[in-house]
Design a protein around this nucleic acid. Structure first.
Lengths: 402, 402
DNA sequence: ATCATTTAGTTCTAGGGTGAACTATTAACG
DNA sequence: CGTTAATAGTTCACCCTAGAACTAAATGAT
């Protein structure tokens, strides 16, 4: 019946078409006024006016309830917010974990509609993963009452080094059976929509940019300190991928030439100094064999001196690494995610102090730091699944499976 | 008489106009065919066809002699190369050195028409510098027979930390009297065209991208190892500036936390380990008080063991730093400039080896390195003046002095 | 209250850019 | 040496986009 103009435009190849630009701009932002859209797309507001009317008629965009939030920004006629029709477009984000699979279902207006996960036997194959995802997706649509036909694309957050351009995982301890395969092709067997994949850290950065602490930021450095260490570089609102898709891999940034050996074969990589194992091992000598990293982080926040020291030493290394990176990138903001953040200020403050000591620009105009470091808003796993959704909403797929 | 359409379009505010896009695209590239222009500007080739005809009539663009170079790229009708009319548009690049001022005069077709310099008393003021530049520019136009009225803009390569956005030098040992001033405004008193400034390293990268070793490269890391250490990050054909214009400052990348103290107040900065002084000082103990860095570099190339060691130790530090930077940026190419390159393979090979040992991605598809490091084509000073010209040809000025 | 000011959005027409179909010019292939 | 395929460039009618001038809706000052 309804031919769903939204999907048609969203998946169109005609990148230059005004409708495409507007739909994509709204998919990225969630909502925006006509005048903002006209500025961001470069189209005249007269064009926007006509186009918005047309897209409203076609149920591609809607005017969401103005809500009660303080719209009193400036004077003048208030702008009417627009968003894509959440009934007409939905996206799925997937995190294939080592022993679980998590997904998120988000509508085109950035409404997070469903998040669920299922356990799965380790060392599962790609096809087993695809089946599990298909099952979860069906459940999610059933639970929300959304139409499966409105699916715009599937995003994948890959837990390991992944080449976004070639679509191939380079290596992975978590998903050994997913290496060197065309993962998109496997998903295409079950999903007739574009499948877009990127590494977990890049996804996490996108999640923070779309819903979290980096909302509206066009340039920032994202750092994820979790079991491993990863990151992402956002330039001009886009994820920097690099020649081999390895941009943002701050885990293998060398902090100390004589530091511990890293899995990559170098010495003193940030990851070698910060990975959970490097923290948990010495902690066990003091607190027994069963202590876990989150517990250490928690005890650090409560003030336990040994745990504070372990966390703050790691934070010092992190701050030093970030200072080196910022000497080259000089971003206006650093967003930090991963479960190190569970240690709270113990971790963040030590990192900021170390950063400020090692960053070569110390002149600060006002009170604050030259490069503020803020904690991300998303917990682990959520950042990945939601970021994978963001992948669908932001990245143009190379090929289209009509 | 001739109203000079080229200048009118080049300096127009109407950034969306097709003619503007075409002129700017040609200014960047030097020459291009109609179909390339249509691809790069996003305009239809029908539009391009009409526009090119119109611009030819107005003497804005010309068809340069096909020259004899192998055009046999592929089959099909060969593309006709186009370039801006070199008679109608010229740019000047300026390097205000500590005790000299150098300029380059380049036409709109990327023809390097004149390069000259003059000595000047150290600690000169901005206004004294402006006068000297004005004199040099007049000489250059007189010598080439080009029209001074065709000047499209003046580019400045600032030897020191410079904020491209605010147009202010932060500090400088070479030009102490240029700090904290609106340098563009001083030049505007003598030149009624846009004045665009950036730091020397960024300019050098632009020179390599426009004429040199990075010709046609859209993404690369530029590193300059000279008296000091600087660099630039090129993403998608644009210079990354960063929040405070400090992006690319690889000199203050920390290599060794216990290394020598740096002028910036940190320890073990790459610059602290590589600046000429750090090389020349130990060399003097062996070779006498009068030895200079270029001599050391030369002796290293000739195989003198002591000089080889000094240079290759520095190269090892450089390779380590570049590996750390590339862990985050993962560029497909590194271009190296500055007078360390005078040591030739002694320097470059040691750097590449150190890089390969410390870079975490070692899988190499073919024989070559994952991240090739190549020497830039321009000698010192030339890279700056020519890059400053590139600034004029590539960057859109914020304000226009009609 | 009223009016000036500011910002958002609409209307309408002229003209400019586009796509489709065309011609032009080359290399590769038998 | 013609044919085929591939790429570059041209023509032209039509529709879409932009700009000017307008209305609409808010704030804040008098």
């Amino acid at each position: 019946m309804s031919s769903n103009e939204l999907i048609k435009i969203f998946l169109s190849e005609d990148v230059g078409a005004p409708a495409y630009k507007v739909v994509r701009a709204l998919a990225e932002r969630g909502s925006a006024s006509a005048i903002e859209l006209s500025r961001h797309t470069g189209l005249a507001k007269s064009t926007m006016s006509a186009l918005v009317a047309e897209l409203k008629d076609a149920s591609v965009i809607i005017e969401p309830e103005p809500s009660k939030d303080a719209r009193a920004s400036s004077r003048g006629r208030p702008a009417v917010q627009l968003s894509l029709n959440p009934q007409a477009g939905t996206s799925v984000g997937v995190l294939p974990g080592p022993d679980f699979i998590g997904i998120a279902l988000v509508d085109a207006a950035h409404g997070i509609r469903d998040e669920r996960s299922v356990e799965i036997k380790p060392n599962y194959s790609v096809d087993q993963g695809v089946e599990a995802v298909a099952e979860l997706v069906q459940q999610a649509y059933a639970a929300t009452g959304l139409q499966r036909e409105t699916l715009l694309g599937v995003g994948l957050a890959m837990p390991g080094p992944f080449n976004h351009r070639t679509g191939v995982m380079l290596r992975s301890t978590l998903l050994p059976n997913w290496v060197d395969l065309d993962i998109g092709a496997h998903f295409a067997k079950r999903f007739d929509v574009p499948v877009i994949a990127d590494n977990e850290s890049n996804c996490a950065a996108i999640a923070e940019m779309t819903w979290g602490a980096a909302l509206g930021q066009q340039d920032f450095l994202y750092a994820k300190f979790d079991e491993g260490v990863g990151g992402a570089v956002i330039v001009d609102g886009r994820v920097l991928r690099g020649a081999l898709g390895a941009a943002g891999e701050i885990g293998h940034f060398m902090v100390d030439p004589d530091g511990p050996l890293c899995t990559c074969g170098s010495r003193g990589c940030l990851e070698a100094m910060m990975r959970w194992d490097a923290i948990v091992r010495p902690a066990r000598a003091l607190f027994g064999e069963n202590i876990t990293f989150p517990q250490i982080a928690g005890r650090a926040q409560e003030g336990d001196p040994g745990c504070v020291r372990l966390i703050s030493d790691a934070a010092a290394a992190a701050g030093r690494a970030l200072a080196g990176i910022c000497a080259v990138l000089n971003p206006p903001l650093i967003v930090v995610g991963g479960r190190y953040v569970l240690a709270g200020e113990v971790f963040l403050r030590a990192m900021q102090e170390s950063f400020d000591r090692h960053f070569h620009i110390r002149d600060q105009t006002d009170g604050g730091s030259v490069t503020p470091i803020v904690a991300g808003t998303f917990s682990n796993n959520r950042d990945s699944t939601l970021g994978a959704v963001g992948l669908v909403l932001r990245e143009k797929p190379f090929t289209r499976s009509a």
